[in-house]
């Protein structure tokens, strides 16, 4: 399991791309899917690379990103 997980609120996303630019691991990209406002929403193209660092969320101007991280003390088998 990847260390991190990003949840993007599709309807809040305005497809500005700041999260994609900010992600140090190339996790995010445009989905090619459009929300009801007509924006090409961002998504996790490479979820396996996500560390849950939340840099994408720090840069999201629409506060559309939630970030989850695997609890460090969690044994792998339990996941």
């Amino acid at each position: 399991m990847p260390k991190g997980l990003v949840v993007i609120d599709r309807e809040r996303c305005k497809g500005c791309g700041l999260c994609i630019d900010a992600c140090p691991f190339g996790v995010l990209g445009f989905s090619g899917e459009y929300n009801s406002s007509g924006y090409n929403v961002a998504t996790m193209l490479h979820p396996e690379k996500c560390t849950g660092c939340a840099i994408c969320a720090q840069m999201c101007p629409d506060v559309a990103i939630e970030v989850y991280r695997q609890q460090p003390d969690q044994p792998k088998e339990a996941v």
Partner: peptide, 17 residues
């Protein structure tokens, strides 16, 4: 706004919202 309907797998903790 839209509800986030993604299932969060067990063992993950929200670190940013």
């Amino acid at each position: 706004m839209s509800q986030v309907s993604v299932e969060i797998p067990p063992g993950y903790q929200k670190v940013f919202g």
